[in-house]
Every structure is written in C-alpha cells, then in structure tokens.
Design a protein around this nucleic acid. Structure first.
Lengths: 151, 151
DNA sequence: TGTGAAATTGATAATTATTATCAAAATGTG
DNA sequence: CACATTTTGATAATAATTATCAATTTCACA
C-alpha cells in the first residue's frame, strides 16, 4: 500500500520517514493552509513526538518536491497547503486587509485556466520564463469588516 | 507645488515630513520593489539621516494609505513598490524557484482586467468579499536556470 | 535478515526581520 | 509663534526561521 506521493521521494532521493508520513497525513486531514507552528501542534496532538526544526525542514522539503505550496498572507509567517493536481481543487485566497482573515476560493476554474494558459505562453515568449505554478491573492474587506466600516 | 499624493496625508490625518517625502522620492526614482533595508540604504546615500525604525513605520503607513503595495517573494523579507493608478502601469511578478530572481511583468493588462473584474464580481456574490486590489505571482524557472537544468 | 554508509532528527544556539518603548524633536493649527 | 500632537531615533524586545552537531534511523545490498 505505497502512497501515490512516495514515488516523489524516490525521485528526489529522499527517505520516507514516519515524521514525513505524519506531516502529509496532517495536510490531507485538515485540507487547509497551516503554519509550521500549527503543523507542530497537530503532530503533538497525534502523539507524534517531533522537534520543531524537523517540521520546518520537512515543510521546506515537501515544498521543493512540489507536494506542498508555500503561501504568504503578510502576517509574518509562512503557510503551507496541499498541492492539488486536479484542476477543480486548485484554489486561491481572499485576504481581509482589516482583520487579516483569509478565505479560500476555487471559482471560475475553467475560465481561469484558459486565461492563465494564454498568459503563461506570452510570458514564456517575452521573458523566457517557464511557469510551474501560480498564485492569485485578492486583498479587500471581508463581509464582517464591511459592516463595521459602514456603521 | 503640492504633490498629488499629499492630499492622501490630509485624508489620513498624517503629517508630511521630510523623511516621508524622501521615501516616496526613492520609490519614484527607483521604480522597482524595495525592501526596508534597501530603502534605508538608499536614504543614507542621499544624505538623509534616518533611523531604520522610521523606515519600517513609514513603509507600513504608506501601504495603509494605499501609496505603496506590499509584496512577498518568499525570501523572508517584505518588499514594497509604488501603487500605479494607471492600469497600464500595473504589474505582477515572475519568481524563479531556483535562483530567487524576480522579474516584473505587465503583459495582457486589458484582457487581465476583464477577466479579473468578472472574477471579483463572483467573489463578491459568493463570499461577500469586497476586492480592493490583487496580486498574481508566477513561480517557475527563469531563462538562465532553465539552461542550467538541461545541462 | 543483518550491516553500514548516508540521511534524518532533536535540542538548542544563532540569525534575521520586524515591532515596541519612550524621551526628545518636529509639525502645523489657531 | 506657542503648544498640543505627531513623529523620530536609539535600542531593547520579539518572533519566525535556520544552523549546528552528536545521536538515531533508514534502506540498499550482502
């Protein structure tokens, strides 16, 4: 019962350790973006005795291997989330500039892909840049903060 | 000869100081994203005696006032760049995942606006989120790093 | 199935970017 | 031009992340 992601470890000449398994499991279960500290806490809750340095090291490794995406919401921490290969599961982020809340969205996926493919082709032609992934961040006001501003 | 951005200071009840003037000048002259440390160095080069804390405070203030945009390329620092009101001057970033180089681009702007306006409307309907700005980051390999990978 | 070279880990020190503190200096309104 | 308020500088404090290195674990191969 080899997991589908294990071949990535072979490819990168990395070893499959219980900690690495557990970290991937956390992301599969939580299905949301997590900071290093949050991953560390969730591992502890699972009785997985692990050092914080190992968490940082492995989040970095998993990002380099393409299993995780690193995202940043401007609050001083880095966050990580599962890379989804299915186009329907790819998502982006709405960040409230007032309260800092982050909402995931995955709307307009077909249209988005079409648009981004065209854009990527142009970027490749003009800048010789080979695109592997992209992230879109929207900044604005969430529902709650709009109400507060009006009153 | 009041600068166009000075009315923003009135609106936010903030004072126009020589340091703040100088910081805005730096961004106008350099016309690229800069870290706090870089702004600090450039001010020093201009004989503008200023403390690093003041630089951080003012970069934050100018972002809140909408004169600067805060951007993040995943290297542990925050960067800032001029907010351009003309649609033709709006740009995004290509980040090389190998060498960390960042390339600005401002392609396909008309098409992009059309696409993003539609998207923003949908996000407003579904999540009640009011969009103020957006950023698109492309991750991949720059021209140089593609050559290195092949060899 | 056991062995050993190489990779991984844990504890913690070090580093780096950013924020807080607070007295002194500067701003601009009346 | 005086004064209430804001801004600044020097530096201490904080927070996230990375480096170090000896001990432990993994896995290819015998």
């Amino acid at each position: 019962m080899r997991k589908t992601w294990e071949k990535q470890f072979d490819y990168f000449n990395k070893r499959v350790t219980p900690h690495r398994r557990a970290i991937i499991e956390i992301f599969e279960e939580e299905n949301r973006h997590l900071s290093a500290e949050e991953v560390y806490m969730l591992l502890k809750k699972k009785e997985e005795k692990v050092g914080i340095a190992t968490v940082y090291r492995n989040l970095d490794l998993l990002s380099q291997m393409g299993l995780l995406h690193r995202v940043n919401f401007g609050d001083g921490k880095e966050y990580y989330e599962m890379t989804r290969v299915l186009p329907g599961e790819h998502h982006h982020h709405l960040i409230c500039t007032k309260c800092g809340k982050v909402v995931d969205y995955s709307e307009l996926v077909g249209e988005e892909h079409e648009f981004l493919n065209r854009l990527e082709k142009k970027l490749s032609n003009k800048y010789g840049f080979l695109t592997q992934s992209h992230q879109i961040y929207f900044y604005g006001l969430c529902e709650d903060c709009q109400l507060i501003c009006e009153s």
